[in-house]
Nucleic acid binder design. Sequence first.
DNA 1: AACTGGATCGTCT
DNA 2: GACGATCCAGTTG
Length: 188
Amino acid sequence: MLEKSFFDRPVLEVAREIIGATLLFDGVGGSVVEVEAYDETDPASHSFRGPTLRNRVMFGPPGHAYVYKIYGIHYCLNFVCRPGSAILIRALEPVRGLETMRARRGGLADRQLCSGPGKLAQALGIDLRHDGLGLDVPPFGLRAADAAHPIATGPRIGTTKGAETPWRFVLAGSRYLSRPLPKVQPDL
DNA sequence: AACTGGATCGTCT
DNA sequence: GACGATCCAGTTG
């Protein structure tokens, strides 16, 4: 199981290593295939303008869940690293509790159960009640990746600010991503 | 395959 | 009072 000290490192380092890790919530979840990194130097980050009521967990100790509501509808799960930095969990390959996730996600195909931050939170049953919980104790269960995984990177999704920062990390070739990596523009 | 608009509300200006 | 670290259904090509 991953301990809190795992997250007390530079956020980009943790983001790469968390790919391929297993994330369970109440025994439901799967393998992490897509994340994005954010830190306090980053205009796109919730922590950029300092602590507020919403983002206070991002400034607390490493190894806790930062959960927020977005667009009035969806929830997003982050892993807090060093103060001001966090990793948005964007997609999982579903492995455990498939029937539970299908029920929560309206019977969709496996590929669409956890292929996006809001979808993933819905499939695992995560909401604001879980903001601030420790990642090393139930209902969370995190297991490190058992081997090195091929990583691909690209720009982050859904944010205008800092759009050129390639802080999106995915498991290369996975079919469970929220979206494929953008095509490389050929030179003219 | 790509793009559009609507849902819906907490948070911060 | 405006705007999201999103998702889905609908339309168009």
